[in-house]
Simulated assay, not measured.
Amino acid sequence: MHSRTGLHVRTFIPGEDAELPAVLLVHGFGSDGRRDWVDTGIAEALAGTGRVVLVPDLPGHGESPAPSTPGEAGAPTLAAALATVVDEAGAKGFDAVGYSLGARLVWALPEAAPGRVGRTVLGGLSPAEPFEAVDVPALHRAVTEGAEPADPFTAAIAGMVRAHGDRAAGLARCVEGLRATPFAPRSWTGATPPVLVVGEDDVMTRGIERVAGLVDGAELRTVPGDHHGALTGAAFRRTVLDVLAG
C-alpha cells in the first residue's frame, strides 16, 4: 500500500496481538525495505513476537516514487513522512529500527513525533554526514550526461546511483536533499536512550563512540561484519529482537 505521503509501505500483521507497540523499520540509502528488513528475516521475526511491523520505502527507493525536488528528500521532511506512516497505521507509541541512512532518520524521529518514540536501534550509523563531501553538480552531470566526476568520492556515489538505472536521477536528488540537511547530532530527544549497533569491520561507523557519548544511558554494541555484512548477519537480528523485547 501507499501512504498519503507517497511512500510505499509493507505492513506485517501478527497472528496474535501481544499489545506491544508497533515497530517502524527504516532502510539505508540505495536499498529498500524489502532488502534490509524482509529478506533478512527481521520484519517477520518481529511480527512473530506479536507486533505490527511497518516497512516503508524511502523516496526514490524500492516501490516509492522519486522526489521531484531535493527538498522532498531532506532529513526533516523524511522524518515527518515516517511519522505520518505510523499515524496512518493507527499507532500512537512505537519503537523504531534504522540502518545507515535509516538510523540517521530514526535519530530525528523523536522531534518529528514528540513523546511517541519508545525503544530504538540505530544500526550502521555514520557519526558524520557522508554526503557532505559530494560535489552535487558533478553528481547530476554524471547521472544525466555520463560525465565522470573528478572527485573520487563523488565518482563512487555516482557509480552507486547509476547502478539503479532509470531511478538514478531521483537518487541524485535524494543525495542533494540529504547533503543540504546534514546529520550533526547534538542531543537525543527520545525518552529512552538508543542502542547503537555497528559492524566490527564497518569503516563507515568509525568514531561512533562520540555519538553514543552524547546520550546518557546510550548503549553501543558491536556485531560481526562490515557495513553490509552486519545488517544481514544473525547477530544483528538477535540484537534487534533483544533490545525491543526490553
Rank of each mutant, 00 (worst) to 15 (best):
S3P: 11
R4Y: 08
L7R: 11
H8L: 07
R10H: 13
F12H: 15
G15T: 13
L20Y: 05
L24M: 07
L25R: 08
V26H: 06
V26E: 00
H27I: 06
S31E: 11
D32M: 09
G33A: 12
R35T: 15
W37E: 00
W37L: 03
V38E: 15
T40S: 12
I42D: 01
A43E: 01
E44S: 14
A45S: 14
L46I: 00
A47Q: 13
R51D: 09
R51L: 13
G71H: 00
G74I: 05
A83Y: 05
E88K: 14
A89E: 08
A89D: 03
A89S: 11
K92C: 13
G93W: 07
V97Y: 03
V97W: 01
G98T: 01
L101T: 05
W107P: 14
W107H: 11
W107Q: 12
L109H: 06
E111N: 10
A112H: 12
A112T: 12
A112N: 10
A113D: 03
A113E: 07
G115R: 03
R116F: 09
V117T: 09
G118D: 05
T120N: 08
T120E: 05
L125C: 05
V134N: 03
V134R: 00
D135R: 04
D135V: 04
V136P: 01
P137Y: 07
A138T: 04
A142E: 01
V143Q: 04
G146C: 01
P149H: 05
P149N: 09
F153P: 02
F153T: 04
T154I: 07
A155G: 09
I157C: 06
A158E: 10
G159T: 10
V161Y: 02
V161T: 12
A163V: 12
A163D: 11
H164W: 08
H164E: 09
G165D: 12
G170I: 10
A172S: 12
A172T: 10
A172F: 10
R173K: 06
C174A: 14
C174F: 02
G177Q: 05
L178R: 03
R179Q: 00
T181A: 09
F183M: 08
F183K: 06
F183T: 02
A184F: 04
A184W: 02
S187A: 15
T189K: 11
G190N: 02
G190Q: 04
G190E: 03
P194F: 07
L196Y: 12
L196D: 08
V197S: 11
V197F: 03
E200V: 12
V203R: 15
M204T: 14
G207L: 07
R210W: 13
D216E: 13
D216S: 07
A218C: 10
E219D: 14
L220H: 11
L220Y: 10
R221E: 15
R221I: 07
R221G: 04
R221Y: 07
R221K: 13
T222I: 14
T222R: 14
V223I: 06
G225N: 01
H228P: 05
H228Y: 15
A230H: 05
G233Y: 03
F236M: 00
F236I: 02
G246R: 15
